[in-house]
Design a binder for these strands. Sequence first.
DNA 1: ACCTGAACACCGTTCAAGT
DNA 2: ACCTGAACACCGTTCAAGT
Lengths: 187, 187
Amino acid sequence: MSATTNAENLRADSARVRARMLAAARERIAAGDLDLPMNAIAKAAGVGVGTVYRHFPTRQALLESLAAQSLENLVAVAVAAAREPDVGSGLAALLRAGMRIQLSDPALAEVLSTIDAAGDETADLSRDLAAAITTLLDRARTEGAIRPDLTADDLRRLLCGLQHAVRIGAVDDADRYLDILLAGLRP
Amino acid sequence: MSATTNAENLRADSARVRARMLAAARERIAAGDLDLPMNAIAKAAGVGVGTVYRHFPTRQALLESLAAQSLENLVAVAVAAAREPDVGSGLAALLRAGMRIQLSDPALAEVLSTIDAAGDETADLSRDLAAAITTLLDRARTEGAIRPDLTADDLRRLLCGLQHAVRIGAVDDADRYLDILLAGLRP
DNA sequence: ACCTGAACACCGTTCAAGT
DNA sequence: ACCTGAACACCGTTCAAGT
């Protein structure tokens, strides 16, 4: 077999191993544990602990990989919201989706709250998210639909905060709390 | 010396040791670390690790002891706010103080967010806090100053959430965010 | 009674040795 | 090149032995 084939095999194997580690981490998170012990993940994925470190040099890197899909979903929602003809509906839809996705993926909730410490790929997505939100807020500001001083970063942080308020109690208060935030954002 | 004197000496010594452990824990928190490793606290306080466990059976118990003073301050503010003639001023003062005290004491921020898991003393203070807030909200509701469905627990959680929103970014956004929440609470 | 700290289990992290 | 897992440091927690 050629060198190329070998490299591809290695990459395929590496991808499989990576998927196994992420699955093991997700299992722990689903069980309510955001601890992500590297040794335990290695054992559950059937690899040496050094392999976990090779793929995910830090706990933050692992978290970001776990949250990547959810973050992409959120970016897509924000882009769509920025294009929504009714800017008020767009803003409401964005906040609702941001809450829903964070509640369904605790890794995203943590990544979204610590986005300043993000690696390259997460930082890229974060920029896309901020750009879409800025577009939406600019439109809303022009229409007089929101406080003039509100930035994309404000909206992200307030959404993270609201998620925290929901999470420390009953999840079915989410809609009421979103309503309170939306009302508070008006000028 | 009498048995009473001995008991008093023991108590005085115990209190001194307790204070030393709390001071050691506070030093770590002040250094930005909410980890509170029991072994490290024992070493810093010059006691055996078993003594730390005797005084604080769980990390939660230690956190609550660290936050007790701050929580008492918050309760006092809430009681005063409930008596404030201008109910709007009372509500604003309570939220501002809740934010300020949480920001100055990360242990309180965590205890306030996990108040359901509280021990007896913290639970007592929590009840006092809830009672004072309920009094304030009842008055505000009668005057039509707030949404009718808002409970004391909602206010606590929203305040915890807002603290989180502030903490993950610049602290000087606190006043703007409080303004947004206050606006959102109106009917 | 209260305190000490050794002891055990476990996790983070590195790195020499294997393939 | 990539992976393994032993090794070391550290933390949580218990409990037999001391005072």
